[in-house]
Structure formats: structure tokens, C-alpha cells
Design a protein around this nucleic acid. Structure first.
Lengths: 339, 339
DNA sequence: CTGTTAGCGCCTTCAT
DNA sequence: ATGAAGGCGCTAACAG
């Protein structure tokens, strides 16, 4: 199917004037005769004229478009971040192109290349759990295209990033478990490729240490976030000779999986096993018992990422200072930890 | 921040050859000396050369990009459709730009204009609940840019669309209620701007009629899908002198809202009130009691929309025949209708 | 106030 | 096998 798009030349010809005048009228340049301008605008709307953004971007070397790469968007988290970022960017006059890496490093690299080819002005990204090599993002930096990481950040690049306080959230989660009488607290952690997994693990460790509870490596399992296999690890923990009386899971879906394993095994929650997640998934509020969790300001995460990026877009390259924004988390206590 | 992108001219100059040769080497044209080609490719990767898609699109009048407009993407539904469409389109060599109209007619119009300006090759769309005027989509048609509607379709345009069998799903939902002994079956419907709302309402009506149950207008409420207000309508129904013994809700979130109202009022589900939703939201499977609902092949919806669009992209304009694809729905029986 | 000209980066004839 | 020239649609000097 071929498309027939009207150009300013078509309009100019139809009106017997030059394309410059048409261009001026259409862009709101003051130096155009009132009547001429009206004739041009009328004709433009009559033929559904729509400026060719490709030509303008080619000329101005600026697309007004920001790319966003996320590893998934089935869970409520990334969609909400995207909406936050998008609303902010729209307000500031930017368009958004969303890419979905599907937790695949290869797809992420190809997303990055495509965004580079389409000449986005900036990039907001949360990388995949497979990503260990960040060369595809470093190209952006080298070309002077601002990159902002969120949620899962890249520590080896000197870029801005926006996160929540994963360390403190985990610390308070574990502290809450200790204060409600738990002593053998297990942690089902995420892969150590992810900064937020590492920070949550550190928060877990430090909370135990603060209260004089030894860190038992047997109670820490790191897994790849493949939810289908979470039950294996939960069962493994529950089968230990000296099983845990509490489990802090890397995220809510994992904790919910643990809850379902416990139910199946007839283990009472919270009596025999306390459960706590991270992220406050909508399901956590409606399930029985409710899941205690750490909530994070999701929409704000997106807004902040957008703002940081735009700030950088408006900064001269040699004045660039990376920003590190950390948003607060909040402990939400529900029935999975206390009666 | 200004970006310095390498061009084929930079490469040509550095190698002391013409840009034509560089272009040929980079696009895989056969008529290039093997050694020259290698030197060019080496240099290109050394300087992180990335072809400027804007220039190519301007030249070829083809962007290889498809726009998708959805009214929201918090619920699991639209993200899953998008993923289905995106995977299919990626497989076929197309990029995707996702726009979020946020159920606002105005935003939708501006999304459409932006996609037109960025010269997308095609459009996949589910319109907002406010949309009554489809002029912004008709422009695409007039310019020969294929449009495919899904989920919420436009009946006044001669375009392809992909939907699920809303009528039959609703019919079977109500039939199930009747067969389990219910007689006063209410319907909390969606706005009549949406084709799927209207089709579900028709399915509801026809099922009642088939079983000789009079359609009582008092039991049909149409609402704007603003979840915050769903409880008002549920309460209104439950306060009727002759209240319903079953409620068929336009979608799962609405049914879950009704469930929570029932719990608050001490109404037993399913004993006093049977509840049934539409869409099989993940929450419906985990809540107590489980929500009976109609499931739909969400990912396939996206895949089909993508396939229909690409088929049309490869068709000559005068041979275009709109396709109407209807995917099957499935009744999922859970505790909200039977013990 | 309006027209002419140049050029953004690339591909594609048309020559050589 | 390579180079030169033209043009996609547009904006921005530069002239008048």
C-alpha cells in the first residue's frame, strides 16, 4: 500500500505561492500577510496536511522523541512507571517510544540500536536481568545522547539514575519480622545482576546483624525471577531440618507464590511462617491473608526519570552532572506477618 | 545537549572514498570491492556508525513503523495485547510506537496527529470510551495508511478489526447463571460508545429471552467504567425492593468491586448473590471466592491485529478487503457462581 | 512581506 | 568497481 501525503509544495502550487511562505504560515512565523496565512491554513486543513516530522528532524537534528526500554510490562510496575514518565514528557513537549526487551539481552541490544537509528533525543531504561555488558548503552553516552537508568541501574556508567530506597525498604521489612518475634528469616533473592536485588539483600543482612541474628547462608537463595520455579526454592527452604519462621521475598509475585506453597502444605501464615514481599502489587491487597510488603512510589519514579532526562537534555554537555535520585519506600503491614 | 552523529560522509572522508561506495557497502550492495567493503565495515563499527533512519525514511517514504494507540495500560489486558502485536510485528520487520490515550478523546486525537506526522506505515487502535467522532482515524484511511481496530471497534469505518466474541461470551455467562438457578440477573454494563459493551449487553438480553425470563430495565445499569463509582451502582441494585440474585458485570474489575460491596454488606457470594465478570483478570483466580468470568485470548488478539495489518500493508490499495476477525471466548467457572 | 537557495543524511540512477 | 548528481520535505538564512 502506497501512501500519498500532501507536502508544502502541493499547497504552494495550489495557491500559486512559494513553499517558504507556506512553511512560514504553518510554523506561525510573524512575517506573513494575514490573508495569505488564512488561505494557507484553510488549504492545509482542507487537504489534511500533516507536517513530515522526518524531514524536520533530519534538518534540525532533533526528534523531540525519548526512548524508554523496559524488561517487561505485564506486572503493574513498568506500565505505571511508563505512564508517569510519559505524562511528564508530554507536558514538556516530548514524544515517547516504548521498547520491550522481554528480559532478553539480545532484544535489548537491538532495541537500543533501533532507537539510535531513529535518533531519539534521550533514553530512559531499566535493563534486563541478563545484561552484564552495557556497551549498547555506552554508545549513547559517547554520542552525547542522555541516558537515565531507573529501578535497575548501571553502576559502571557515569549516568543519572532514579531508584527507590531498596536497601532501606528491605531493612525495615526484616526489622518488622524481627520485631514481631521471628528469628529464622529466609530471603528469596533476585539475581545479582540487578542492583535492586543486591541492595535488598544488603538491607536484609544488615537488619539481621543489627539485631544480633547471625546471617545463615543456608537461608539465602538467589533465583532468576522465573516465577515458575519459585515454588522449588520455597519448598527447599521449608524442607530444611531447621526451617525458617519467616520469608522475605524479592518481590510480591514471589511472595504470593510462597503463600500458595504454604497453603498447599498446610503451613499456617502468619502463625508458622511470616511472609513479606516487595512492591505492593494490587493482588497483595486482595488476597487472604493480605501480603505485608514494601510499597514504592511507582508513578513518581517515572516522573522523576523524565524530569532528570529533560534537565539533562537542556544542559550543555560539559556542564553535565549525573543525578542520583532515591525515592522513599514504605512498609505496608498486612495479615501475612501479623494476626 | 547536542549530539554528534557519524554519517557516511565522515566514513567516506576518513577512508578517502566517495559516500556512494560507503552507502553500497553498508547496505550490502554486491558491486563493492571486497577489501574496500571490509575497510568500510571496520571503520563503521569503530566509530559506532548507526544509519540515520530519518533520512532513509524520508527517501523511501516508508518508516517500517507501526503505531499502536490504547486507552489505558494499567490492567493486564492492553499490555498483553501490545506484547502479542509487538512480537508479531518485530518478526515481520516492523517497529512499534505505543501511544496511550488515557481514555481521553483529546489525547487520542493528538496521538493520531503525532503518528501521522511521524509517518507510521500503519495503525492499530482501540479507541477511548469518549470517542464518538472518528475523523482523526479517517485521515489515515484517506492517505492510504491501513488502520486496524481491536477490542473496541469503529463500525462506521470500512476497516479491518479484530475482536473477541463478546456477544457469545455474555450469552454463555448469563446462560450459566440461569442454569444454576438464578432468575433476577442484573447487568452492570459499560458505556454504549463501546462496541464490546453493546455486544455484551445484547448477549445478556438474548440469553434471558431464550430462557423466557423478561428483561427488566431496572436491572440494567450502564456506567462509564470509572471504577471509583462502581460501588454506587452495585449498592443501588442491592437496595432495590426486589434485588437481583445474580450480577453480570461488564468486566472483572467491576465484578471484584461488587464482590467487595457484597462482603461489606454481609451478602453471601454465591449463596445470596452470584457474580460473574468478563476478561479473566489475574486477580479473579486468587481472590476468595474465585470470580467466575469469561476469558479471552489476549495475546492472540494482538498477534492477529498485527497480522491483519501487515497483510494489508502488502496489499495494493485497490484490492483492499477489510477483514473482520472474531476470536472465541471461554467460560471459566469459579466460586462466585457455584459452591 | 515574499521568493530563492542551500542543505540535513541517505540511496539511486547515470556516468565513467 | 567507483564517483557525481539529484532529490525525499522541510526550515533558515539571504536577498529583494
Amino acid at each position: 500500500m502506497a501512501t500519498h501525503q500532501t507536502t508544502i509544495i502541493d499547497i504552494a502550487r495550489a495557491l500559486g505561492i512559494s513553499k517558504s511562505t507556506v512553511s512560514r504560515a504553518l510554523t506561525g512565523h510573524p512575517n506573513v500577510n494575514g490573508k495569505t496565512r488564512q488561505r494557507i491554513l484553510d488549504m492545509a486543513s482542507q487537504v489534511d496536511y500533516q507536517r513530515n516530522q522526518l524531514a524536520i528532524s533530519l534538518l534540525t537534528n532533533r526528534t523531540g522523541t525519548v526512548g524508554i526500554i523496559v524488561p517487561e510490562f505485564i506486572s503493574y510496575f513498568f506500565p505505571k512507571v511508563i505512564i508517569g514518565a510519559q505524562e511528564e514528557l508530554a507536558r514538556l513537549g516530548y514524544n515517547v517510544v516504548i521498547c520491550h526487551s522481554n528480559e532478553s539481552y539480545e532484544t535489548e541490544v537491538s532495541n537500543a540500536k533501533a532507537l539510535l537509528a531513529s535518533r531519539v533525543d534521550g533514553l530512559i531504561v531499566s535493563h534486563t536481568k541478563e545484561t552484564r555488558n552495557f556497551d549498547h548503552f555506552k554508545i549513547f553516552q559517547r554520542k552525547g545522547i542522555p541516558v537515565v537508568f531507573f529501578n535497575r541501574v548501571c553502576e559502571e556508567m557515569n549516568v543519572s539514575n532514579v531508584t527507590v530506597d531498596d536497601y532501606n525498604g528491605a531493612f525495615r521489612a526484616v526489622e518488622h519480622l524481627i520485631q514481631t518475634g521471628r528469628r529464622r528469616i529466609a530471603h528469596l533473592a533476585g539475581p545479582d545482576t540487578l542492583t535492586n536485588s543486591r541492595n535488598r539483600l544488603n538491607g536484609y543482612r544488615d537488619a539481621l546483624t543489627k539485631y544480633g541474628i547471625p546471617v545463615d547462608p543456608e537461608l539465602i537463595i538467589s533465583y532468576d525471577l522465573n516465577l515458575d520455579k519459585a515454588n522449588i526454592y520455597v519448598n527447599h527452604l521449608l524442607n530444611l531440618p531447621n526451617p525458617p519462621d519467616a520469608l522475605f521475598a524479592i518481590n510480591d509475585p514471589t511472595a504470593l507464590e510462597a503463600l500458595s506453597v504454604a497453603k498447599r502444605r498446610g503451613i499456617r501464615v502468619p502463625d508458622d511462617l511470616a511472609l513479606i514481599g516487595f512492591s505492593d502489587d494490587p493482588i497483595s491487597a486482595v488476597i487472604e491473608p493480605g501480603l505485608t510488603t514494601i510499597s514504592q512510589p511507582v508513578t513518581e519514579l517515572g516522573q522523576q526519570a523524565a524530569q532528570v532526562l529533560v534537565r539533562q537534555l537542556l544542559t550543555k554537555e560539559d556542564e553535565f552532572q549525573p543525578e542520583r535520585i532515591v525515592l522513599p519506600t514504605n512498609l505496608i503491614i498486612r495479615g501475612s506477618t501479623v494476626k
